[in-house]
Simulated scan of single mutants.
Amino acid sequence: MTDIEVNETGPAGVAADAYEWLVVQGGPDHAPYAGADEIYHDRDPYGEYILFAATDADAVNEMGQCSIQSYKYLAEVRVSFEEDLLEDARQDIAWCQEEVAEQGHAFASDIWPSWQDVPLEVVSNSIFPEGQDFVMAKSVLAVGEDAASFVEVTRIESDGPSEMALTFCKIEKDRLLEIKTVLKDGGMPIYLWAGLWQELVEKYADLPYEQLTGSKRVEPEPEEYDFGDLDGEDEV
């Protein structure tokens, strides 16, 4: 796979101030932690404690809550002590370790920088076969013994939009710290979205350990459709 050619002046006609983040949790007037049912109006809590959440203004209702369904870009910092979420993170970290051992750091050093000035739709069109449904590309940005950062790009339907997610996860004792941003706006330059994720990682990666209790957890309803593993899954 080749790098995407970067436009050094940035995408034509796209101004940084066209994309603004609205912070709904984590500002000076907010409590240190909040439950998912306090931050989102359409998401059940799953035992997490949210330190920071931000999204685009259109995703926030009149009560100051945001949507987990209809947003253009979303950022969240959370901690959890739920064993199933910890196990998912252990698997992600193990995968990142294996991937770097086999492939090295070529993606992080060469390809990821070439994506910065282009929008999501350009990245998606460059890595996914035309006309193919249910495709995912995943690659490592950094990995250590108990922490990892990785990027995922997914597309469910060939004629539908793609989305990109950046994730930092870290396990300390029985606590999972996860810093994640998701982008669905196909025209947004990657650097305008990824910049906040990088700032959040720098701010929260060494969050002091604190045992928290009392969070709500509502088990999700079974999915109406189970697509199983995504076809065409591959590393970027």
Score class of each variant (00 low, 15 high):
Glu152His: 01
Glu152Arg: 13
Val153Leu: 11
Val153Gln: 04
Val153Lys: 02
Val153Glu: 05
Val153Thr: 11
Thr154Cys: 06
Thr154Ile: 07
Thr154Lys: 10
Thr154Phe: 02
Arg155Met: 08
Arg155Glu: 00
Arg155Ala: 02
Arg155Trp: 04
Ile156Gln: 15
Ile156Gly: 15
Ile156Leu: 15
Ile156Tyr: 15
Ile156Met: 15
Ile156Ala: 15
Ile156Thr: 15
Ile156Phe: 15
Glu157Lys: 15
Glu157Ala: 15
Glu157Gly: 13
Ser158Asp: 09
Asp159Glu: 11
Asp159Lys: 09
Asp159Phe: 10
Gly160Ala: 14
Gly160Phe: 11
Gly160Met: 10
Gly160Glu: 10
Pro161Ala: 08
Pro161Arg: 03
Pro161Phe: 03
Pro161Ile: 04
Ser162Pro: 09
Ser162Cys: 08
Ser162Met: 05
Ser162Ala: 14
Glu163Ser: 14
Glu163His: 12
Glu163Gly: 11
Glu163Gln: 12
Glu163Trp: 11
Glu163Pro: 00
Glu163Met: 10
Met164Val: 07
Met164Trp: 01
Met164Ile: 06
Met164Gly: 01
Met164Asp: 01
Ala165Cys: 08
Ala165Arg: 09
Leu166Tyr: 10
Leu166Cys: 13
Leu166Asn: 03
Leu166Ile: 03
Leu166Val: 05
Thr167Pro: 06
Thr167Cys: 12
Thr167Asn: 13
Thr167Asp: 06
Thr167Ile: 14
Phe168Asp: 06
Phe168Asn: 06
Phe168Pro: 05
Phe168Thr: 04
Phe168Ser: 07
Cys169Tyr: 11
Cys169His: 10
Cys169Leu: 13
Cys169Ala: 15
Lys170Met: 08
Lys170Leu: 13
Lys170Tyr: 14
Lys170Cys: 14
Lys170Ala: 12
Lys170Phe: 12
Ile171Ser: 11
Ile171Glu: 11
Ile171His: 13
Ile171Thr: 12
Ile171Lys: 12
Ile171Arg: 13
Glu172Gly: 05
Lys173Gly: 06
Lys173Cys: 05
Lys173Ser: 12
Asp174Gly: 00
Asp174Val: 01
Asp174Arg: 09
Asp174Leu: 03
Asp174Trp: 02
Asp174Tyr: 03
Asp174Lys: 09
Arg175Pro: 04
Arg175Ile: 03
Arg175Glu: 08
Arg175Lys: 12
Leu176Ile: 05
Leu176Phe: 09
Leu176Pro: 06
Leu176Glu: 09
Leu176Thr: 05
Leu176Val: 04
Leu177Asp: 10
Leu177Lys: 07
Leu177Gln: 07
Leu177Asn: 10
Glu178Gly: 05
Glu178Leu: 13
Ile179Gly: 06
Ile179Thr: 04
Lys180Ile: 14
Lys180Cys: 11
Lys180Asn: 13
Thr181Cys: 12
Thr181Met: 02
Thr181Phe: 01
Val182Phe: 03
Val182His: 01
Leu183Lys: 00
Leu183Asp: 00
Lys184Asp: 03
Lys184Ala: 09
Lys184His: 12
Lys184Ile: 03
Lys184Tyr: 10
Lys184Trp: 08
Lys184Ser: 10
Asp185Ile: 00
Asp185Gly: 05
Asp185Cys: 04
Asp185Leu: 10
Gly186Thr: 01
Gly186Trp: 00
Gly187His: 10
Gly187Ala: 13
Gly187Cys: 06
Gly187Ile: 03
Gly187Lys: 10
Gly187Arg: 08
Gly187Glu: 14
Met188Ala: 07
Met188Val: 01
Met188His: 02
Met188Arg: 06
Pro189Trp: 01
Pro189Leu: 03
Pro189Ser: 02
